[in-house]
Write a protein that binds this DNA or RNA. Sequence first.
DNA 1: CCAAAAGTGTTATTGATACACCCATGC
DNA 2: GCATGGGTGTATCAATAACACTTTTGG
Lengths: 222, 222
Amino acid sequence: MDTNKVKFEKASVTVDVLIFTVEERDLKVLLVKRANKPFANSWAIPGGFLLKGESLDEAAFRILIDKTGVTDVYLEQLYTFGDPERDPRGRVATVSYFALIPFKKFAEPSSPKVSEIKWFSIKDIPSLAFDHNKILRYALSRLRAKVGYSNIVYGLLPERFRFSDLQKLYEVVLNKELDKRNFRKRMFNLGLLESTGEKEVSGAHRPAMLYKFKSREVVFFD
Amino acid sequence: MDTNKVKFEKASVTVDVLIFTVEERDLKVLLVKRANKPFANSWAIPGGFLLKGESLDEAAFRILIDKTGVTDVYLEQLYTFGDPERDPRGRVATVSYFALIPFKKFAEPSSPKVSEIKWFSIKDIPSLAFDHNKILRYALSRLRAKVGYSNIVYGLLPERFRFSDLQKLYEVVLNKELDKRNFRKRMFNLGLLESTGEKEVSGAHRPAMLYKFKSREVVFFD
DNA sequence: CCAAAAGTGTTATTGATACACCCATGC
DNA sequence: GCATGGGTGTATCAATAACACTTTTGG
């Protein structure tokens, strides 16, 4: 192949972070409304340009803190999107990450530049800026696959939770119903959970035992 | 966070492709000896800068063809490495891919710029340029995980192969021995293979039936 | 006593593992 | 006839799937 006349191209590198949480037993993703062109007023995945001296992981972490104030978090690189046409401003490659945070830790963002920021149910996603719908679909498929062979859902839950919260979370992520008894059996057999001994301050029904993950580190199984 | 005084940084984007094959029942990866600085004379993963108008996948494909002449191939994006210190020339983010090719299709490369090119057994990898040892370790762990729940090994095998070739391949990739009867049972149960009806032109032993994958498309199972 | 969610066991089926001998060929 | 790799079956165990009733609380 003759490459003599073809030019290399410096690209801008952005890092986008898909921030997921569970609220009201529903899986939600944090989106921002863009203030500037291109795609002004469109909703988009939060992100930003890579800064001098910053690693990709550091940039993802910075964006996450900027938007949510959360630091104790599960964060994983997802995929890199680099189609030459994906950004009208020029060649921009986006390294996408996904983050899982417990809703309770979320604090309103400090960043003044963002005009608006909002949690969207994954069942109700509008048309997004750039190729962000595609990125979100990719993130969801990774998340769905990964909950099947790892404990990463710990990132979505508070320290202590009811068993039914955990089950509901799996049901929402996997988009299918699970049998209560089989689910409990399997979860206990994996040996990742422990009872806290405490019970929820309950409603008009039998109070539920509260559980926690033995370890808030990623564990793979199967 | 005050970002007013921090500068954005344009980065060069390179695409590196880990090209795997099986030869002599051993898993091998293609490395090139670098002609130029930095790391002149070190072995490295083949790669190159992203060209104008080219998508990441296209760049990976171009590099692969350039080095091997192979076009019918399994190719998958792996991970993006972007530490600010990883290349002494400046900020370079590398999007890594891995490719699986059947050894028979390999043709000597047409590219005149490469000083040397060589297959290395994965058991015998030297110290590589940049952070390429780390990238290779990552690729191997992805490959090992993925053969467990997909049929991607089809990419490493010729059209028709003996069952024992397939088993040996799994053993090399997973670095452990497998039981012959259980392995055959499982493979047949997955329903991805079919007999070609033909037998190998054999050596001093009973001739082996030759099999092929029903589909040379990625299939996931489990 | 009624509504609401928590909690609990058994059976059937499937997939994984462990294991040893005969077969077809070339020389 | 012997050396070389090809090819086959059974029994045990573990994990998964299907399935319905009782318990504890608040109001």
